[in-house]
Design a binder for these strands. Structure first.
Lengths: 342, 342
DNA sequence: CGAAGATCGTGAATCGTTTCAAGCTACGCT
DNA sequence: AGCGTAGCTTGAAACGATTCACGATCTTCG
């Protein structure tokens, strides 16, 4: 059974293909009786439009094309992130998805799995499926792949990275790191450590830079940096061990993300180290778990949903405005959330 | 600029469209000189295949079509889950994605957001884009939507649900609940509670049933059930409060998932209740955090990745075998992981 | 020299949908 | 009756890439 086509529906309903198409796209042009008959036929045959044919015929078709014909089935947007297993990423994606849904568009999530190659394949996929737009947390900055996207008329918005001639949404991670370290210093901590993990995407590096900057500003010493194998709770536990092996043991720790911080805190507690008395811990992200962990975690809240929402808005705007679109670069500032770990 | 088509490339290179197509799809059939000329033209014009047209022409195209022509760009599989924010779901999806990737296919993740309507739209999207297959954690059992998928030649595999005439992968949640409760009983706990949260998908209900069954088998009393507003850590903290308000306070708690259990445990600790001495806690899922939480959590490990992998295998098989495919229903058994919370 | 291959290229037919000029009715109006 | 109009429906022409039966050349060899 190859595909039930519009033609079979037409035969079944005893009308022409044009009419079936009309029922599908501008029902108001079709007499009620006919419409019902056609709809029944569609039901019975389980007919579904062949999107390839539809698009082939319709051509690229910008959103705001003013021909008052059918509302074309809204095209989907792709959301490409490095790791769909990471709560931060899924929160951003979810913020974006909600906004897209409100505008009547569907969202497809793709994971680049930290591989530039896979990212490229994902972008190609979006081109092939003629996505309306793509929200990308880029792995490197694959100029070629992205150019290809835009050449194909896909609206592109970068997240956590910026590039000329493109819309982007970023969080000021340097500021975030700065705030985190400043908070520890203000709490009287003198020996600060920064715990991070591989792979180290730019935003994570920036957090460290911000912290170092803050420390320098305060005339503090050096920022001791521990790099773990991952940005996970398990890696956090390992970091705790390494931390305690230092002498003197740092009394203030800034972790590159909450998962690390939670793992680290839990392991410290297990080893009888008091948090925050002996070691104060600051995380980054403010994932949901941060507030319900053993010692509710002081952290830098990224406006995660807002990042996704902004990105979606930009993508929708670019999609809607077409050529006339002016690219905007949005920068959001993170916020310190003080809880009990400091 | 409407679209550079294969025809313009042909004109530019001074060959026929057929030849251009051959250069694209089976370069070995074309003489080297011609090939280079065409490629140059493609470069100069910045030509990109119109995937809609390609697909339209190629039709559904089973995987194993034995014509040794071009390797058709492998089609993508869709993974539809209820909530891409939930670590369990993303782990399953990731297991599936890895397996699909190995077979050379791409994966698209869709979130149904607990809405039957959105699920339906997602399925339609997959049909329209001619996905090779769909792995679905169904929200209800939208027979119509799924039938439509299959009618369009999309391989369908159900996860955590079963239906006749379809491939499916399930975890035996009743057994899981049974094991959890049995473990608590064996640890000498006498007043058991089950903490769950809305929305309550079937698997979660089954966990409760299994626990109740186990309790009955052991001649124990009633299973006190607390239903929270969500299956999240925050909901878990709230559950702790409700739990302590009971008298007598249960001494063994089985949570419908780890997130609830972690939130609950942390709140209990904060209130000075000892875990496991005063209250033993068992979670469900064995997410990564379970082992790195404050009190490493005893839990029921679902073979999450395995679920995804199995599902992907089944989908690939169905896709490859076509009509001759025999549907299989795989049931995996969860495993008790004993840690310090019991 | 001529026949049989081998090697390349051609161009029309095709996929399923949308679009649009044109046709058909039935109706109202003068 | 004649004519204009509104309301529906029709059918054929696109859209752009792939396929395939068929020619056109060129080799090779008896």
């Amino acid at each position: 059974m190859p595909q039930t086509s519009i033609r079979e529906v037409a035969r079944r309903a005893g009308v022409s293909v044009g009419t079936v198409s009309n029922v599908l796209n501008r029902p108001d042009l079709v007499a009620e009786a006919t419409r019902d008959r056609v709809r029944a036929a569609i039901q019975e045959l389980g007919f579904v439009r062949n999107e390839s044919a539809r698009r082939l015929r319709q051509g690229p078709g910008r959103a705001g094309s003013d021909r008052r014909s059918a509302p074309p089935r809204p095209r989907a947007f792709g959301i490409v992130v490095e790791d769909l297993t990471n709560p931060y990423a899924t929160d951003v994606a979810r913020g974006a998805e909600l906004t897209l849904n409100e505008a009547g568009h569907d969202a497809l999530w793709l994971s680049s799995d930290w591989s530039a190659d896979k990212e490229r394949r994902g972008l190609d996929l979006l081109v092939e499926h003629q996505a309306a737009g793509a929200l990308i947390v880029p792995i490197g900055l694959d100029a070629v792949g992205i150019e290809r996207l835009r050449a194909a008329g896909v609206a592109v918005v970068l997240i956590d990275h910026a590039a000329p001639e493109m819309c982007s949404v970023q969080v000021d991670h340097v500021a975030g790191g700065d705030i985190a370290a400043a908070h520890l210093i203000e709490r009287g901590r003198e020996r600060l450590a920064f715990v991070t993990g591989r792979p180290q995407p730019l935003p994570v590096v920036e957090r460290g830079e911000g912290a170092a900057r803050s420390l320098a500003k305060a005339g503090g010493g050096e920022l001791y940096t521990l790099t773990q194998e991952a940005l996970s709770p398990t890696a956090g536990r390992a970091a705790a061990e390494r931390l305690l092996a230092l002498s003197p043991v740092p009394d203030g720790v800034f972790c590159a993300n909450d998962l690390l911080a939670i793992g680290l805190t839990n392991e410290l507690l297990r080893r009888g180290v008091r948090v925050p008395e002996d070691v104060a811990v600051v995380g980054y992200d403010d994932i949901e778990l941060a507030s319900s962990s053993a010692v509710p975690l002081t952290t830098i809240r990224q406006p995660r949903l807002a990042v996704g929402e902004e990105a979606a808005e930009l993508a929708l705007a670019e999609y809607g405005e077409g050529e006339s679109h002016l690219h905007r670069q949005v920068i959001l500032t993170p916020e310190l959330i003080v809880r009990e770990s400091t």
